[in-house]
Nucleic acid binder design. Structure first.
Lengths: 256, 256
DNA sequence: AAGTGGTCTAGACCACTCA
DNA sequence: GAGTGGTCTAGACCACTTG
């Protein structure tokens, strides 16, 4: 087929294929990702089988499999032998586990509610420009919210999200939701992130919100999360009193 | 070939193959790992090409490639198109970056020397049994060492390593080396790990070793590193004064 | 120019899941 | 039992590196 581009174009739906030097299996992965982010394939539902997809996109079964395996490595899909492939849910507990680094004495994450203290849209300041790699005069949402466990506050979060990626956050969305949920609603695929952890004394207003003594030591969690494409998507500064076996759990993995 | 096991055995050197239900490409990966850990293939040298290896081990080129790709994903090998495949060096800066989580204000890791304060072999205590999943009465090495940067101490490390994995540590090896270097000398492949981070006041003897005031706050880094096979290999408790923009850097990755 | 990995294809048979 | 992914094979041609 590849030697006969004319028929190849007729036989498959990836019409841009012959104009691109991007490997076919990557283009195929992109087509898969596109179907997910466009909502054509919903979370938790099975997708067509390998052969069917290969025919649809006009690639060989082996190439389709390579693309599917890649999408799986990128956590877009999961597999069950004999069952089929599923669109994986970025909101699953497994994913939440990964980003909930504050743990109790038992090593489990602290569940509970989230209370939004304030939410406004403004122009970026200098620190935000640096951390989120934005341009001057871009707009951002600033959210301050409080995480509670057993009705008691355990973390104050100051969150900054570019308006470009998350438009109409204040009026159309629920800022108390998990960031991964929000990102999904916006069609933003979150990839990795980096977090700087330190401990320090607590500012008076923060002590107030967290309902602790002004002399308390808190962990400061300065986190930037990137999209799958590598663009900074969220900057979050978390502050969390260190009490009762509470700790930060970091998973060490081999480097990329 | 697979339909004729008699000739298959003659044609390949993975003689245990037909007795195992482990997939062939995994057995092939194991054979690759074995050649590295046995020292048959040295760090930084090229290995035979795909076709050659496939013939040597009596598997198809595609299966060999799948095994090689897997070994690469596991960081055992690297690749250069047209160049060949190389045994990768677990001691490279890239790997060191990943496990050096304490960073200065500039985000760079703190380089310097390591001073061994004490080293002894004893029987495990209760905490060690739990953290390293050992049995009672097993033996371990305990190493206390001090990390210095610019001649000044910045971290005190208490390290526990099972004697079973690291025999004759005291007499035949240099305990001031990086743990990854030690592990490599023992043929132990380190995989991932987990680290619990908290902050607390400092014990008098620790304050002494770190040359700080007894009232100083330190980060406590409680880390267990596992082998590639998932067995606990090292437990390290690090203590590090929080001063001058120093912080703990955690990389957030998507879950497995 | 020779040799290596990179991509792509085609098709076989097995193991598991599900109706 | 039909359908899915899991494994394994065989071989083509391309792109890059190296001598």
């Amino acid at each position: 087929m590849r030697e006969l581009p004319e028929t190849s174009i007729v036989n498959n739906r990836m019409s841009s294929r012959r104009f691109s030097s991007r490997p076919l299996y990557l283009q195929t992965r992109d087509a898969i990702a596109e179907r997910i982010s466009s909502g054509e394939w919903k979370q938790h539902t099975t997708i067509p089988d390998e052969g069917e997809l290969a025919r649809e996109l006009g690639v060989s079964p082996s190439t389709m499999r390579k693309a599917l395996d890649l999408a799986e490595a990128e956590r877009l899909l999961t597999r069950h032998q004999g069952g089929g492939r599923f669109v994986s849910d970025p909101l699953s507990d497994k994913h939440a586990e990964r980003y909930s680094c504050i743990r109790g004495r038992d090593g489990k994450r602290l569940g509970g509610e989230v209370k939004v203290l304030s939410l406004l849209e403004t122009t970026v300041n200098e620190r935000e420009v640096r951390r989120l790699r934005l341009r001057l005069r871009e707009r951002v949402h600033r959210v301050r919210r409080l995480r509670l466990t057993g009705g008691k506050p355990y973390m104050l979060e100051d969150i900054v999200m570019p308006t470009k990626l998350f438009p109409r956050l204040a009026t159309h969305f629920d800022a108390s939701q998990r960031l991964s949920v929000l990102a999904q609603q916006y069609g933003v695929s979150l990839g990795g992130g980096e977090e700087r952890v330190t401990a320090s004394g607590v500012a008076p207003d923060v002590a107030d919100a967290l309902e602790v003594e002004p002399a308390t030591t808190v962990m400061r969690l300065d986190r930037v999360i990137y999209t799958l494409e590598g663009k900074p998507a969220v900057w979050r500064l978390g502050q969390c009193p260190i009490v009762g076996g509470r700790h930060y759990l970091a998973k060490l993995t081999r480097p990329d």
